[in-house]
């Protein structure tokens, strides 16, 4: 039914007045239009980059091969970036899949669990000599996107309220954190060291271990400044030593 090639058995259930295929198409079109519309709302920058027509065609192909498995529409579309990276007609835009990853991260942060950021006082309550043992819990809306393209610039330039519409593709890659500490989703450009540090924290490493990994990627990393930025930015919601 969904795939026109499997329509034959379905057709036998229906009164045929000569317009059977047209009538079936109303149902197919309704489903496709509604799902590709939801995807377009979610992937607004992709829609702008490729145009409505191209987007609907790509999204229809995605819906055909990866139809939703549940009725929870907010969870649908996670695999669209992966689909785009393999979608032949999109090959001339190699950054497209990474922009889509950023938009999916934004969507998840937007609908993610609200949570109160860690207070600086909590961090100061630990004995200084045990700082290296601190484990951080990241804000539940936090997501990471890494790309060899400046996808944050591409994303910003395609927002409705964008002031700077210029993107320098030669600008290099991006290490991004998407997070919503309060009401607004923020896309933050991090240094490679800070990005590595947060990823390490998320993977359960303690502060000392995470810093070691991070500094191996960025020798100049300033730990104090970085932690202060993270605290101000609501990056963490909890800090513990040995689970306390």
């Amino acid at each position: 039914m969904f795939d026109p090639s499997t329509g034959a058995d379905v057709a036998s259930w229906i009164e045929d007045d000569g317009l059977l295929e047209d009538r079936l198409n109303v149902y197919r079109n309704n489903v496709f239009y509604s799902l590709t519309g939801s995807l377009s709302d979610l992937y607004q920058v992709i829609t702008k980059l490729v145009g409505e027509e191209f987007f609907r065609a790509a999204a229809s192909e995605f819906v055909r091969i990866s139809p939703p498995k549940t009725g929870r529409i907010l969870e649908y579309g996670a695999d669209f970036p992966g689909f785009l990276s393999a979608f032949e007609p999109a090959k001339p835009l190699p950054y497209l899949a990474d922009v889509a990853r950023l938009e999916w991260a934004w969507h998840q942060a937007y609908h993610g669990q609200d949570s109160k950021p860690l207070s600086p006082e909590k961090l100061q309550s630990f004995p200084p000599e045990r700082m290296a043992e601190i484990s951080f819990k990241l804000h539940p809306t936090s997501r990471f996107v890494q790309s060899e393209f400046p996808v944050d610039q591409i994303w910003s330039a395609n927002q409705d309220d964008a002031e700077d519409k210029n993107v320098d593709l030669g600008h290099g890659g991006a290490f991004l954190q998407v997070i919503r500490p309060e009401l607004d989703v923020e896309v933050r450009q991090l240094s490679e060291g800070a990005f590595t540090f947060l990823m390490a924290c998320e993977n359960g490493l303690m502060l000392g271990e995470a810093y070691e990994v991070a500094v191996s990627r960025e020798a100049q990393l300033d730990l104090t400044k970085m932690l202060s930025d993270f605290l101000l930015g609501g990056t963490f919601i909890e800090a513990t030593i040995n689970g306390k």
Binding site: I73, L74, A109, Y110, H111, G112, D114
Partner: peptide
């Protein structure tokens, strides 16, 4: 309700 099945964020607020 499907539009509010996320854990949090502006829609709920």
């Amino acid at each position: 309700p499907e539009n509010y099945m996320g854990a949090g964020g502006p829609p709920h607020r």
